[in-house]
């Protein structure tokens, strides 16, 4: 299955996000070897040069490291992985609040609504 990609943003960025996401969500484990550029490119149905660029960028960020003869690996630096996870989470939260602003809700209102929803869900499962 080709990866789902938006068509208005740079492809390599989206490949980076996807791989980052796969690492954080545990598809790849810390220290795992990742597939070759060619295999990943085929899987995603993108140009190998673009995949190469995405992997190089991830290497620069420290998430991947390469061993000259044996390929590319996921970092086992737990601190870095945790930070990456927190960064991604806070990004999602910011986006959510921004969308709520567009709908005309203040941060306080939004928070209250979240708590409401959670309460109702708990109440629902209790009964």
């Amino acid at each position: 299955m080709p990866w789902e990609l938006d068509n208005d943003r740079p492809i390599y960025l989206q490949l980076m996000e996807r791989i980052q996401h796969d690492i954080i969500s545990g598809v790849y484990k810390p220290g795992d070897k990742i597939p070759s550029v060619r295999d990943l490119a085929l899987d995603a149905a993108v140009n190998p040069n673009t995949m190469q660029k995405a992997l190089s960028e991830l290497e620069r960020s420290g998430l991947l490291y390469s061993q000259r003869t044996s390929g590319r690996f996921i970092t086992d630096d737990e601190k870095l992985l945790k930070k990456m996870k927190m960064d991604l989470a806070s990004e999602h939260i910011h986006q959510f609040f921004e969308q709520m602003h567009h709908l005309g809700f203040s941060d306080d209102e939004t928070l209250e609504m979240i708590q409401d929803v959670l309460r109702r869900e708990q109440y629902g499962t209790d009964s």
Binding site: N7, D8, R9, P10, I11, Y12, L13, T50, K53
Partner: peptide, 11 residues
């Protein structure tokens, strides 16, 4: 392609 997407924000 990525240059076009970065610069113009479109496919």
């Amino acid at each position: 392609v990525d240059e076009i997407r970065t610069q113009h924000g479109k496919s």
